[in-house]
Amino acid sequence: MSLHKKILIVILVASAGAFLWMEQQQNNFTSGTDGQSASLPHPGHSAPDFTLEQLSGEGLVQLSEAAGNANGAVVYFWTSWCPFCSASMEAVENAHRVHGETIHLIGVNVTSQDSKQAAENFLKKHSITFPNVMDQDGAVADMYYVPPVPAVFFVDSGGTITSRKTGAVTTGELEQEISRLKEAD
C-alpha cells in the first residue's frame, strides 16, 4: 500500500474518532445546561423576539407572547410595493381565517422601506384581517435578514423557528408548516 493511501486511512480513522469524541463531549455539555442559546433567525434556533406597534393602532404585538399563547406563530414580512407579497397575501389571509384561533399570524410591514399610508391601502385592498405591525426603523427586519420580501417564519410555541422561506408562499406551504406547528405542540 502506498504512503498516501496509508496517510488517508489514518486521517479517516482520526476524523471518525474525533467526531465520536466530540459527540461524547457534546452529550456531557448538553446534559449540564438548560438548553439556553442566543436567538438566531435560522430554523432550529430561538426566534429573535420583538414588540412592535400595530398599523391599526390597536396596541403592541410581541412575538414570544403571540407564539406562546397559541400553537405557534407565523411571521410574514412584506411591503406594499412588492408584487411577490401581493401574490401571496391571499394565501396568508386564508391561513389566518382557517387557523387563526390556534396559530397567530403576524404581518410585519417593513415600514423603513415603505410608507404607513401605502401599507394601510395595501391591507385594505387585500381585505386583510390578521394583525400587522410596523417595523419603522427596520431593526426587526435586519435581525431576520429581511429584505428580500416576502419572508415568512414559522415559530413554535416555545419560540423556536421551525422553518423559513424567502419568496412568495403558497397555501400548500402554509398548510404544511402550520400542521407541523400544531403537531409539535
Partner: peptide
C-alpha cells in the same frame, strides 16, 4: 412545483414569476 400542487395558481400567469418551491 407550486403549479403542480395547486394548478389554480395558473389562472394568473404572473404567478409563474412569483412562486417556486414548496412542500
Amino acid at each position: 412545483w407550486p403549479f403542480i400542487l395547486d394548478p389554480q395558481l395558473l389562472i394568473s400567469p404572473g404567478n409563474l414569476l412569483y412562486f417556486a418551491g414548496g412542500p
